[in-house]
């Protein structure tokens, strides 16, 4: 939820290594991080804290799992990847390696996915070196009525293996 950003970040773990000189703390073992409705479960979470506050958080797992309620009237958004980086000031989440985002039946998968929380925008990429492609699944129920009944035109295939989608259904191919 929009007000999540003002909430404190709570983390529980089995162990923490705090590096005062370089300004980060590594949490390991059953790590659970919570900020309002945003929650991340991972095996390892690194919090980079400048003087004032925690400004960047990196979660690693197999996969690390993030979930959030973007808006009160929408379903939970689930994001999974081997590495999830959360840039608090930019309200941006970067998912890397085996990344996927699901919400209300829609699903986007790729090598890396950027999720812009404020704009509720997802940008998925697949690395050129790999034959993998971005995969987008939108259930019929999520499509607007005009497209459900008649117009079955297939969304244009993005030229550079990336796609932008707004959670909740419509894809803006490029």
């Amino acid at each position: 939820l929009p007000e999540d950003r003002q909430e404190p970040i709570r983390i529980t773990a089995d162990k923490a290594v705090r590096d005062e000189k370089n300004g980060f703390t590594v949490y390991q073992g059953n790590v659970m991080m919570q900020q309002g409705t945003l929650r991340i479960d991972a095996t390892k979470v690194t919090v980079f804290h400048s003087d004032k506050e925690a400004d960047r958080i990196k979660a690693e797992g197999s996969p690390a799992h993030m979930r959030e309620q973007p808006q009160a009237d929408k379903g939970l958004m689930h994001a999974r990847a081997e590495v999830i980086e959360y840039f608090k000031a930019e309200e941006r989440v970067l998912l890397k390696r085996n990344a996927s985002v699901e919400q209300d039946g829609s699903r986007v998968a790729g090598d890396s996915i950027e999720y812009f929380i404020g704009q509720q925008l997802i940008r998925a990429d697949s690395s050129a070196s790999d034959s993998g492609r971005v995969e987008v699944v939108i259930p019929a129920s999520a499509l607007p009525n005009s497209q459900q009944n008649g117009d079955q035109s297939t969304p244009s295939t993005p030229s550079d293996n990336s796609a932008e989608e707004e959670p909740g259904g419509t894809t803006d191919g490029q």
Partner: peptide
């Protein structure tokens, strides 16, 4: 090295 290893049962709260 200014490193503190804390365990078990770690709980943290970062306030904005």
């Amino acid at each position: 090295s200014e490193r503190i290893v804390m365990s078990p049962n770690v709980e943290t709260t970062y306030v904005q």
